[in-house]
Design a protein around this nucleic acid. Structure first.
Lengths: 207, 207
DNA sequence: CATTACAGAGAACAGTTGTTAACTGGATGA
DNA sequence: TCATCCAGTTAACAACTGTTCTCTGTAATG
């Protein structure tokens, strides 16, 4: 790597980011548990030993990638939750947000979908924690939703989990489709959310 | 390997199965894309070169594992679909079937959950095809269900997809829990299915 | 200006990998 | 009975892996 410009910390963070970027790109064709340290440094153009200045293993790098990938998703979710749309428009807008996010950060989405159940324990755990936090926020937002008034805490969690899982499932399904299938998948996901929405309206009728 | 007993074909299938079993066990701690050919043969106790008599690569072995793992799931699904329970009992029984299957074949479930979005394309495709077939069967069963009478083909597919995805999500969530969390997860999954069921009953009211 | 801190380079290590080729010996089939 | 087949072995190959140690040059610190 060139030692040409910028302050010390800045240059360090630059190569760190380069390592993350290169890893993310390499992970399009394999899973984290087969990602080699040398492979990453070779793609960046630095010595294998330089890797240790930033991460102590590829699993460690994976955890960093989780924060990067789910950090961007986090803002998207907060936006979707705080917006005050009516029930029907909210579904349409949410799907639109997902589609937009998949188009904007496909590698991030792929990484999360792949490593969520992947072969590296620490990374699985990191993703699990973040997703649990997402579910908590969704549940909290649902508490102030008129369509979920009077629901028990357990039922709110149940619904929040359904939404988070469905979001991830939709995102990774969008990824696996070419651009021509986007609309079809998005439409199906929208109808699925609508079905759930109808179930919500009549949930207290029976239980 | 010992050349001691059985006919020729039988011994060949025996080591083939041993390779599959060993691979499945090794895959509990990593993903397929990092599974080495030598690693598998070492676990079985045969020479690396013997591997080529059965598979041409670990990806090839992975495809074979897909058939084995989803073959057993297939019978479970058929049983659940053909049984004629009423709507409420069907949900309870279905969850019970999933729980039982996860307990009986945890390694199979883990493999499918991990490699469904994993790093090996051919295996992803093989799983995708099988799951699409599952969804087709579910959709066909839904066609004769009174609670889905008058639904369009697209809506039936939408619902079937929701069910298949939810089944897999539930199964892999059960896997990641210790035995003590089983009941809780199963209960939540059951309520989620009930929510969807309520949505089904009122689907035609609005669309 | 002199000193220290430290990101990255360089070289070497033991161990592993996938793959090839030639070989062995017991089951198979005429 | 004898020739054939073929699952598995043996040996060797170049290439690659993670990790350690020593070194270099520049930015930061006083």
């Amino acid at each position: 790597m060139s030692h040409t410009c910028g302050t010390r910390q800045a240059r360090k963070q630059k190569t760190r980011q380069a390592l993350l970027d290169a890893a993310l790109e390499l992970l399009e064709g394999q899973s984290l548990s087969s990602l080699g340290l040398r492979e990453v440094t070779r793609a960046v153009g630095v010595t294998p030993t330089a890797f240790y200045r930033h991460f102590e293993s590829t699993a460690d790098l994976g955890v960093a990638l989780v924060e990067e990938a789910l950090g961007s998703l986090h803002t998207v979710i907060r936006d979707a939750l705080t917006a005050t749309w009516d029930s029907d428009e909210r579904i349409t807008r949410t799907i639109e947000l997902i589609v937009r996010h998949v188009r904007a950060y496909p590698a991030h989405v792929r990484f999360i979908a792949r490593e969520r159940h992947g072969g590296v324990q620490r990374v699985r755990e990191a993703i699990g924690e973040q997703l649990a936090q997402f579910a908590d926020e969704v549940r909290e937002a649902l508490r102030h939703d008129p369509d979920a008034a009077g629901w028990s805490q357990e039922d709110l969690e149940m619904l929040a989990g359904l939404y988070v899982d469905h979001m991830l499932e939709t995102a990774s399904l969008l990824l696996s489709m070419g651009d021509e299938g986007f609309e079809q998948v998005a439409d199906r996901a929208e109808r699925q959310l609508r079905l759930v929405s109808i179930g919500r309206k009549h949930w207290l009728d029976v239980s």
